[in-house]
Design a protein around this nucleic acid. Structure first.
Length: 257
DNA sequence: AGAACCGCCTGCTTGC
DNA sequence: TGCAAGCAGGCGGTTC
């Protein structure tokens, strides 16, 4: 599923492909998106990422905000044929940007730029001091906190597991029990792992594909997520799977304290 | 107020 | 083989 590195990959590709160009047409193919305005004639001035949201800034000072949720993809299609589960199409230049989403969770919002109450992004405008003061003392597990978009933007289940494994911290620890030193380790690992994820163009376990339908390579780098029963690279222990907040968490009980 | 839980969705996997 | 149940999970909304 698209998290920060995947969305960043898409934004870079979209920037190259459509920034500065005019939207020639838009089409809605899903009742859930009915009523979505046609923004034909506007130019795309800028492609930006905000957490996991793709923001296309338009020439009329509004924007298109696309969130892919679980199974959404944005695909560049040169031809007119539309593949199964296409929900929305935006024609730009000699091709289309198609939103393809089997499970229909993805959302598109067109309007004035919304004042975002979401958490800051570790790769851009994150403020460690503010986080330590306002979020780090909460009485939820550190894993749940890492995945809370109000606390930090862009981290989902896969990268949360990888970050905590990298930092050697148990996902079951309550956020408030981590020392400042441990939080610093979490921030450092998060930046390292997200950066690597971007470099590898995302994690393609099942659904993720880039703008051109290609898989990423970060799935080969995973040390925890999806590794149940395998040997821990760090300590030789065995990776376990548990449930937290209804989702799978993968971790090494031996070296994640 | 903050933590926990629910519902949205459909393709894939599992069990009988 | 076929069918039903179970599972996957981001996040806004609701409940406790």
């Amino acid at each position: 599923m698209p998290e920060l590195p995947e969305v960043e990959t898409l934004c870079r590709q979209l920037h190259e492909k459509i920034a500065g160009r005019e939207i020639l047409a838009t089409m809605v193919y899903d009742d859930k998106l009915a009523g979505l305005e046609n923004v034909r004639g506007r130019a795309i001035e800028e492609v930006r990422r905000s957490g996991k949201t793709i923001v296309l800034k338009l020439s009329d000072s509004r924007s298109i905000a696309i969130h892919l949720r679980m199974t959404g993809r944005l695909l560049w299609h040169q031809n007119k044929t539309k593949e199964k589960h296409t929900r929305w199409r935006m024609t730009v230049g000699d091709g289309n940007v198609d939103l393809v989403d089997p499970r229909r969770f993805a959302t598109i919002r067109i309007g004035p730029e919304r004042q975002d109450k979401d958490g800051k992004d570790l790769m851009t405008d994150f403020d460690e001091k503010v986080f330590l003061k306002r979020q780090a003392l909460r009485k939820v597990s550190v894993k749940i906190l890492l995945m809370d978009p109000k606390a930090i933007a862009g981290i989902g289940n896969i990268y949360a597991c990888e970050i905590l494994h990298g930092a050697g911290i148990s996902p079951c620890r309550l956020a408030a029990t981590l020392t400042e030193r441990e939080w610093k380790a979490v921030f450092r690992q998060a930046r390292r792992i997200l950066k690597k994820g971007i470099k590898k163009r995302g994690t393609s376990i099942s659904d993720w594909r880039d703008l051109y339908g290609r898989k990423g390579e970060n799935q080969n780098e995973l040390k925890a997520y999806g590794q149940e029963g395998k040997t821990c690279h760090t300590c030789g222990g065995t990776i376990r799977r548990i449930k937290q907040g209804g989702r799978s968490t993968f971790y090494c009980p031996l070296c994640q304290k």
